[in-house]
């Protein structure tokens, strides 16, 4: 350590102490967003949108063409034909898949008792420390505010953590700081679904409750964030934690391959008991 000056080590220790103090702000205070944080989201919106579009096109091009590159010359005409047909098929199948997704999203939107804004996923967290965050291309301009629930046609996705001008960050339900008040659909046993990073767990279910593997878990609407009755996932394992039942939950939504989501414009902390 002889190559480090005492002053440098002192500065690093001071920075560490400041970081510890900043980190100790509770989540509620952290979510009081600063104009600088909003500016960062606006600043990164266009590059992220551009890169995610280009990546989508390149990925399609890769799938369609790259394996044709080394084929022999005499097969060129035939391969061009195959390529054209493949491209058409790919485009048709992509359009079909997107159509199905959007139709389900539209049905979900129509069924919802709140207005909803469809959004595309344009990015995700750059850090492994909190990887359960995605970035969508709708922000305060579209009526999105912090705390609004986010869903897909398959169920709950998460909630808005930070709303920028044109884009927003979504905290996924699998993030360790995420918590959703929920019911077991079959028996109405109540608990809290919390993220574990890789998946979710439902904690604080009373011991006497009836819970089985395969049970569907839905939001209760009592946490002030999520509307009542949106599917969260399925029970895949049951254990105990203290004097409560703890259930492992497999989220219904494939959170790693999300392309479109719906931001439900439900005011936070309202209608909690009436839903």
């Amino acid at each position: 350590m002889g190559f480090l000056k005492r002053r440098t080590i002192f500065i690093v220790i001071v920075l560490l102490l400041i970081a510890i103090q900043l980190f100790s702000l509770d989540l509620e205070k952290r979510e009081k967003q600063t104009p600088a944080a909003r500016f960062v989201l606006t600043l990164t919106y266009y590059p992220q949108k551009f890169v995610s579009s280009v990546a989508g096109v390149m990925s399609g091009t890769w799938n369609d063409y790259i394996h044709l590159v080394n084929l022999r010359e005499e097969n060129v005409r035939l391969k061009e034909e195959i390529s054209r047909l493949r491209r058409e098929k790919f485009e048709l199948s992509e359009a079909g898949i997107q159509n199905t997704r959007l139709r389900k999203l539209l049905e979900f939107r129509e069924e919802s008792s709140y207005p909803a804004v469809p959004a595309n996923v344009i990015g995700a967290s750059p850090s492994i420390l909190r990887s359960q965050v995605i970035i969508v291309d709708k922000g305060t301009r579209d009526g999105v505010t912090e705390g609004m629930p986010v869903a897909s046609f398959d169920g709950v996705v998460g909630r808005i953590l930070l709303a920028g001008d044109r884009s927003s960050e979504v905290l996924l339900i699998t993030d360790p700081v995420s918590a959703v008040d929920a019911y077991i659909h079959r028996t109405r046993a109540r608990g809290i679904v919390q993220g574990t990073g890789a998946g979710c767990e439902m904690d604080y279910i009373e011991k006497k409750s009836d819970v089985s593997e395969g049970d569907k878990v839905i939001s209760s609407g009592k946490d002030g964030f999520f509307p009542k009755g949106v599917v969260i996932g399925t029970v895949t394992g049951i254990g105990s934690k203290g004097s409560f039942i703890n259930a492992k939950i497999s989220p219904h939504v494939h959170l790693n391959s999300l392309e479109e989501v719906l931001i439900i414009q439900k005011p936070v902390n309202s209608l909690v008991l009436n839903e």
Partner: peptide
Amino acid sequence: GYLMDVLSGNLPGTFTLSRLSAYILVKSS
């Protein structure tokens, strides 16, 4: 580091100060 903080779910100061420290240590050495 601040961009990392905001885009990683708003972890205030975590990346800003850790990376600033790394910068200072390398620069100093």
